[in-house]
Amino acid sequence: MISTIPHFVFLIALLMLFIAMVLVLLRLYKGPTLYDRVLSTNSFGTQTVLFIGVLGFLCERPDFLDIALLYALINFVSTIAILKFFRYRAIGDILIEREAKK
């Protein structure tokens, strides 16, 4: 009896994380500015890390924690890369406008 409770608790935690991910995706869809979208992508990544960890405990395969660590790493680097890329693009647009004026 008592051994089925952890299963249940992890299942509930997965469900909660899933609801939170859906809410954040709604913000990603609605977000008026680019930075709202980057922010919600970032917190979606954090929730995915937690999701993978809980899933590993639910399946009794703690090896999943390596994948969670990898995902956290890629999430951080991709956020920085997206921000830098969009900074460049904005400047590129201004350059294109200048060339159009010529």
Binding site: I5, P6, V9, F10, I12, A13, M16, L17, I19, A20, M21, L23, V24, L26, R27, L39, S40, S43, Q47, L50, V54
Partner: peptide, 19 residues
């Protein structure tokens, strides 16, 4: 179990706040 449960609630509250 209490920690995991309340952590899940906090994550939902964070997502709700960002919405």
């Amino acid at each position: 179990w209490i920690c995991i449960f309340s952590g899940g609630i906090l994550v939902i509250i964070g997502a709700l706040g960002s919405l």
